[in-house]
Amino acid sequence: MRTMFDQAGLELWLTEKIAMYLAIAPEAIDPTTPLAEYGMDSVYALSLFGDIEDELGLEVEPTLAWDYPTIVAIAGYLCEELATQNREAS
């Protein structure tokens, strides 16, 4: 399992990941802007979850990016999930 990520770390990681998906520079992505506005189509956004599961060892709903449409929101959700998982593990 990977190291714990905090909100800022997760935002950075997500920004880089999504920049790669969208083939744009990470600097061009504002973490508070809905991903759809960058042209990330919803079905495609589903595939983000696989990377998240791989990277964080965390099982998440594929529709994560639908219900948490910005990077900040996704990171916030993941932070909470990781914390829960951590509590349960200890």
Binding site: V43, Y44, L46, S47, G50, D54
Partner: peptide
């Protein structure tokens, strides 16, 4: 086909 392409990373993994 596009639906499958979207899942390539997971399927390949």
């Amino acid at each position: 086909l596009h639906a499958l392409i979207n899942q390539f990373p997971g399927l390949a993994r």
